[in-house]
Amino acid sequence: MKRTLDKIDEKIIEELTRNSRLAHNDIALKVNLSRNAVRLRIERLERDGHIRGYTIVKGLPASEHPPIRALVFVYRQDRMRGSEVVRSVAAMPEVVSCDVMSGDLDIVLTIEAQSPDRINKVWSDISSLPGVLNTMTSFVLSMAK
Rank of each mutant, 00 (worst) to 15 (best):
V85F: 06
S124Q: 04
P61W: 08
E112C: 00
F73S: 11
K58E: 15
E15G: 00
R41D: 07
L141S: 12
A28F: 04
S83L: 11
E10Q: 15
P116H: 08
A28K: 09
R41C: 02
R3V: 06
R44Q: 08
I68G: 06
M80E: 10
D78S: 03
V72A: 03
H24C: 10
P67C: 04
L129F: 01
R52E: 12
G103A: 08
K7Y: 02
L22R: 15
L133N: 03
V100N: 02
Q114F: 10
E10C: 06
H24E: 11
L29N: 11
R118F: 05
L129V: 10
M80N: 05
T137C: 07
G131F: 08
L129C: 04
I68R: 07
S142E: 09
A37M: 10
S127F: 02
A113K: 05
S142I: 00
A62P: 00
D26T: 11
A28V: 02
R69L: 07
M136Y: 14
I27A: 09
E64V: 06
V86N: 07
L109M: 10
L5Y: 05
K58N: 14
D48Q: 15
N19L: 10
D125H: 01
F73V: 12
E43G: 11
E64H: 10
Y75N: 08
P66T: 08
R81N: 09
V72W: 03
S128R: 13
H24A: 14
D6H: 12
L16I: 04
L40F: 14
N134P: 07
R18S: 00
I13P: 10
S128I: 03
V89Y: 02
R76H: 02
E43Q: 14
S97M: 14
R44P: 06
S124Y: 06
N120V: 11
I13F: 03
D6Q: 03
V140G: 00
E64I: 06
V72Y: 05
E14Q: 13
Q77E: 15
G53T: 11
S102A: 05
G59R: 12
L129H: 01
M136L: 15
V132L: 04
S142K: 14
G49A: 00
S138I: 11
D26F: 09
S63A: 12
M1P: 12
E10V: 03
G82M: 06
L129K: 08
L71P: 00
V96K: 10
H50K: 14
L109D: 01
P67M: 09
R39L: 02
T55K: 15
H65D: 05
E84H: 15
A90Y: 04
I42P: 01
